[in-house]
Design a protein around this nucleic acid. Sequence first.
RNA 1: GCCCAGGUGGUAUAGCCAGGUUAGCAUCGCCGGCUGUCGCCCGGCGGACCCGGGUUCAAAUCCCGGCCUGGGCGCCA
Length: 442
Amino acid sequence: MGLLDESVRMALRGRVLAGDVKPELDGKGVNLFGWVHEIRDLGKLVFILLRDVSGICQVVFRMEEVEQSVRDAVRGLTNESAVFVEGVVVKQPRSKLGVEVVGKRLTVLGRAVPKLELDPTGKVSAGLDARLRHRILDLRRPEVRAVFLVGSQVLKAMRDFFHMKGFVEVRTPKLIGSATEGGAELFEVKYFDRVAYLAQSPQLYKEQLTTVFEKVCEIGPYFRAEASHTGRHISEFTSVDIEQAFADMYDVMDVLEELVVHVHRHLVENHQHLLQMLGVNLRVPKRPFKRFTYDEALEILRSEGVELRWGEDFGTPHLRILGKKYTGYYFITHFPTESKPFYIQETEKDPRVSESFDLMYQWLELASGGTRVSDHDVLERKLREKGLNPAMFEDHLKVFRYGMPVHAGWGLGFERFLMVLTRRTNIRETVLFPRDRFRLTP
RNA sequence: GCCCAGGUGGUAUAGCCAGGUUAGCAUCGCCGGCUGUCGCCCGGCGGACCCGGGUUCAAAUCCCGGCCUGGGCGCCA
């Protein structure tokens, strides 16, 4: 009898989730569908922990009180098989949850092979590499799954927030035609009889779109062909971007702050159970976040005995020092123009300083943004200064002749944000199927 | 790309420094036993030294190269 059997289909309509099996249901007959999380065979008494998306509940089979066919089915069970259990809920103080289901019938809907590569109960620990090689089994572990349930809630909270604030969610191309933007290495792909590249950022498109929608946001995948090997870089990642017309860096920093607070509040108020599963005690950060300038950061480093030449960018060791001093979220602003891309606006007072900012969490860079250049001629000049050919940017430049307002925006690394929220230390743990220098499967 | 550490049953590890044992422990899988487990327990069985080369009477162990993994750094719109 399989899932397609008519009686199983009927039973599915009266399905009760494992997480909904409560002592109050005492005496009620239930149909449970899920996976065999654990089997404890005591002989005439067999305990099965049944796991579904909602949680885990205990089913007990009294072997002398069920039919022979059920006994055979129970005896032949393997861990992680997909099953259908019919039983009766009983209040049971001897069970940890105070309730269990006395199993009457058991149907194996999808048998799992006996010797799994990974143990979804987590009794035997596994290294990250082994976990990622057998990712689906790894994801069945409640704690691992919780990372992505939180991730889904973060996405929801962010979208709610953006809509509330009047942002229009847009989708820009991930296949692009020119590799002239500079910076990170691009992945090449065959595009009919030409070469195309995978997008590494929506930057130019989102700026252009502010002249249409004023406030745009995008949550999308980007690709960087860097040979990086760290716990916070992967070659395919998700970026949360906004761009806003008639706004400067301070306006969008406020948006970013509010977003971070909104996401925290959503999780803390509505999803404590997920946070508990992750062992995370999350607190809603207070606004405004600490803000200091690049120059002030240099001073802080100097006071810690680290001398940095003005204009030099921070290395990871420098950020670790700052992160030790400033726990939680904070902004570093006004980076040297030199270290920023061509589209970042210089300050009026000093062209060597830019209207830019990074959002940090301890030593981890989460987001960066700033006021953008909105003047056509300045943009053209800055392209040249960065050694880029303005002719290659004609599609972009021409928009700046169509009435370009002052605008600002930022990009936030979604997985890095999720690392912070779920307290994971390797970014690969926050991606279902991570792609890095050496990993292209599964 | 660089530095450090590592690669032993499906998983996680001990053994390696100081070469020679039946390669140990746990989990896992199979078989048997158990009516209150909740990391169930008890007994039996099964399964492994990353690849290539070298040194040696003898290599999991020492040396060289490769591949891969973890951590750190760099790179990084």
